[in-house]
Design a protein around this nucleic acid. Structure first.
Lengths: 222, 222
DNA sequence: TCCTGCATCTTGACATTGGCAAGAAAGGAG
DNA sequence: CTCCTTTCTTGCCAATGTCAAGATGCAGGA
């Protein structure tokens, strides 16, 4: 009976001691477990099993299950960013760019529902973790840049109405993705292609905000 | 011997057999556990403990943990509906009504974050459960009615652009609530009061949809 | 009255989990 | 070679969800 680690021919390391790259191997198996069993079915011991190490090995690299999930969530943010960047690749027109980014966001939720859920979970994640915060900020900036381009002000930071438009956009694509995954949109018979149409409203609003004072018109009731 | 509801005064508990209203008692303790320990920290045995019964008692009423959580999620939908109805109570103007409902939605997420998470979870819930489907449909109808009133067509079913506006509204308030709870909106410095402002964009759009053909203008690209 | 059927609840067991403590293995520094 | 640190293993613990078997109280029929 073969006991060797035959994951992807990990390398010339028959001994499990000093694996060499156990952290990365654990993250890889953790992504598999997450995709297969979901966030609820995720267990540390299963990750260790797939990495070919003992059940207590992950503790040394990630502390506890929260540490491993937090590292996974940070990777999830990076996957989300990659999905948005891939969707907008080669598109010059700012409006088309924003539409593509929205589609990329929803596509990420559709293709990696478990990672989407984990990434935006507010339990079991260490929100003080620098890597997680950095990844979340980078995802935020991807959207912010797109809005700035639509508004025609690529350099200045967003304020006032344009900041509200950014929050509007993010809430829209995020809520749409979440409702889609939770099956609630079945009530409406709405498919995921609709996100492009929904973004039209926000795009029109960004144009209005940009043309009418932009940075100052924030005295409506905030 | 009286078998009445003595949940609060635990005192007269001579026999745990034939509790009389164990299902309701378990739901009550389950809500407490959910609120205190969150969705992850939720355990069947803790619910049974607080209800004063053995660890296997819940199985007979809810089957497994999924059954209990599904029943809880249905109650969560009803709480959400109650929050929206309470927020719009006494408001006649359709636009103000929609704003109030949006605030009620976000307030529900803020006040009952665990229930919000559970209700829209797509794991561990039996989405075929009739009670859950009915509760979700009722919450959906609360929003649909509000949109119909803003559009000025309280009787006809929503189609085309107005249906898209409904999905837009729901996605917006839901995504905003979710991002708020997950702490991602900290990047923007945006508080929860902003939801009223965000709804302005949708309201304007509903008016446009209602005035320009309403039920026919769905040939944009859907 | 007694007795039998039945729904309800308890008890006990089992496999699995996360976390901790102690020990073993590998590799480097002196 | 010896010692020390890092890395991983082994063994253990309490807790969990689920199942099987038993205990308990109620209702209905003789």
């Amino acid at each position: 009976m073969k006991v060797g680690r035959d994951k992807i021919a990990i390398g010339p390391k028959p001994s499990a001691y000093h694996h060499g790259d156990l952290r990365r191997a654990l993250l890889a198996s953790a992504e598999m477990v997450l995709a297969e069993r979901g966030v609820e079915g995720f267990t540390l011991r299963e990750c260790a099993r797939r990495a070919g190490v003992s059940h207590a090995a992950p503790a040394h690299h990630f502390g506890d299950v929260t540490g491993l999930l937090t590292a996974l969530a940070a990777l999830g943010f990076e996957t989300l960013i990659a999905a948005m960047q891939e969707a907008r690749a080669g598109i010059e027109d700012p409006t088309e760019r924003l539409r593509a980014i929205g589609r990329g966001y929803v596509a990420f939720a559709r293709d990696y529902p478990e990672r989407f859920q984990l990434t935006f979970d507010w339990h079991r994640l260490n929100h003080e973790d620098p890597a997680l915060r950095a990844a979340g900020g980078a995802a935020f900036e991807e959207l912010e840049t797109a809005i700035r381009l639509v508004a025609g002000m690529p350099d200045e930071p967003l304020e006032g109405d344009l900041l509200a438009d950014l929050v509007h956009t993010w809430s829209l694509v995020h809520g749409f993705s979440h409702l889609l995954l939770s099956g609630q949109l079945d009530h409406t018979g709405t498919g995921e292609r609709v996100i492009t149409d929904l973004l039209e409203g926000v795009i029109a609003r960004v144009r209005v905000s940009a043309h009418s004072g932009a940075r100052k018109r924030s005295d409506k009731g905030m």
